[in-house]
C-alpha cells in the first residue's frame, strides 16, 4: 500500500514537473477567413499586410468582414481594446487602431453601427517595441497620471513634451524581418467600470480566438 502511494506520488510529481498539470490552452487557433464571434462583434479576418499610412509610415492593415452584435453604436476604441496584435519577434508594437470601410476608404469610422455588415480595413500604427526594463519602469510609475501617454520620462516624473510631439520612427526595417502576425480576439462583456460605474464594452480574461497571418508588403 505504501509502495503504491509512493509510486503514485512520484508519478504525479513527474507529471507536474513535465507541465502535465498546467491548465490546457483552450484558445482556438483559427485560420484566416474563419469567423470569430464575440458578444460585441462578429469578425472574419481575411488578410494582413504592411502598408504605408497617410504620414508615410509603415502600418499593419487587416482586411476583414465586420458586423456589430450590439443594438447600439460601438466605439472604435472598444474594438481597439478587443484585438491584440503581436509579432513573433516582439520587436514591433501595435499602437492605435483606425477603421475605414472599403466602400468609402477616405472616411474614418469612429462608431460601428448595429446590424450593418461591412468590409473593413483595420489599420494599426506601429512603433518599435519598448525594452522590457522600460516597460517595467512605466508599470511601476503607473500611479503617475501622465504614464501611458508615451514620451520620455524626465527627472521628477514628468513627461518630455518634445519627445511626445516627435514623429514616430518608421518600423519598415523591422517589418521586413516579420513573416507572421497574430491577432488575439478578446471575449467582451458590457459591464460597469471600477471607478466609472457607467456601463461600456470591456475585455475579459478570455480569448475568443487567435488568428495567425502570413505577412507580405502592401
Amino acid at each position: 500500500m505504501l509502495v503504491a502511494a509512493a509510486v503514485l506520488g512520484a508519478a504525479t510529481l513527474a507529471l507536474w514537473a513535465a507541465g502535465g498539470l498546467a491548465r490546457a490552452d483552450v484558445t482556438p487557433r483559427l485560420k484566416p477567413g474563419t469567423e470569430v464571434r464575440t458578444a460585441m462583434y462578429t469578425l472574419t479576418p481575411h488578410k494582413a499586410e504592411f502598408v504605408k499610412d497617410d504620414a508615410g509610415l509603415t502600418a499593419l492593415q487587416v482586411r476583414a468582414d465586420l458586423v456589430s452584435n450590439d443594438t447600439k453604436p460601438i466605439q472604435v476604441s472598444a474594438l481597439d481594446q478587443a484585438i491584440q496584435v503581436s509579432f513573433p519577434s516582439g520587436a514591433i508594437d501595435a499602437a492605435v487602431l483606425s477603421v475605414t470601410y472599403t466602400r468609402h476608404p477616405g472616411g474614418l469610422v469612429f462608431e460601428i453601427q448595429p446590424g450593418m455588415r461591412e468590409e473593413v480595413l483595420l489599420t494599426w500604427s506601429l512603433r518599435k517595441a519598448e525594452a522590457e526594463d522600460k516597460k517595467k519602469q512605466q508599470e511601476q510609475n503607473s500611479d503617475n497620471p501622465l504614464a501611458g501617454l508615451g514620451g520620455e520620462q524626465v527627472e521628477g516624473g514628468g513627461i518630455d513634451l518634445e519627445t511626445l510631439m516627435e514623429t514616430p520612427e518608421d518600423v519598415a526595417p523591422l517589418a521586413e524581418k516579420e513573416d507572421e502576425v497574430t491577432l488575439a480576439f478578446s471575449e467582451m462583456e458590457f459591464a460597469p467600470g471600477f471607478t466609472d460605474q457607467s456601463k461600456s464594452w470591456k475585455t475579459t480574461d478570455e480569448t475568443a480566438a487567435e488568428v495567425a497571418f502570413p505577412l507580405g508588403q502592401g
Binding site: T71, K72, P73, H104, G107, F110, E111, Q113, P114
Partner: peptide, 16 residues
C-alpha cells in the same frame, strides 16, 4: 443625435 428605433436599435449620425 441618435435615431432610436421602436425595437431598441440605435444609430448615431455619420462622421463622414
Amino acid at each position: 443625435a441618435e435615431l432610436v428605433m421602436s425595437d431598441g436599435y440605435v444609430y448615431s449620425t455619420t462622421g463622414w
